[in-house]
Design a protein around this nucleic acid. Structure first.
Length: 117
DNA sequence: CAGGTGACCTTAA
DNA sequence: GTTAAGGCCACCT
């Protein structure tokens, strides 16, 4: 019997986030959709908060549907996220990035093949 | 069990 | 371009 490595919803979310490429961003809602959890954007934020730091997920590439950083402006995590985005040559103005320019558009076929069973 | 909360989203002003 | 309201759902009091 194989050890149960079935993907939990949270694991799925971590997996999707890990695939966002450098220099691109993705909204919480989109991550939820891609993880097979439509309408569960808030679950994505919880999953990120719960993610072990050893995973080194690119959590800073996840923003809200308006292209804005969802942490309170000027808060510590807000500033860190902005710095991380800028370090990838992403332009951030008033805590917002231009989605038309930076939104991740994954190839769905490739994505499906990368999914854990 | 009931109510509050939040790293959200869509819609309608 | 903005904000406000309603919806959402796992977690915590």
């Amino acid at each position: 019997m194989q050890p149960s490595n079935k993907a939990s919803p949270m694991t799925q979310i971590w997996h999707i986030v890990s695939m966002i490429p450098e220099g691109k961003v993705c909204s919480y809602g989109k991550v939820a959709d891609l993880a097979g959890l439509p309408g569960r954007a808030r679950y994505v934020s919880r999953a990120l908060k719960a993610a072990p730091s050893e995973l080194a997920l690119p959590w800073h590439r996840v923003i809200n549907s308006q292209g804005k950083i969802s942490f309170a402006e000027h808060s510590e995590p807000f500033i860190e996220q902005m710095q991380r985005l800028r370090s990838e040559a992403i332009i951030v103005n008033r805590g917002r990035v231009k989605l038309a320019e930076y939104e991740w558009r994954p190839d769905l076929a490739t994505l499906v093949l990368s999914m854990p069973f």
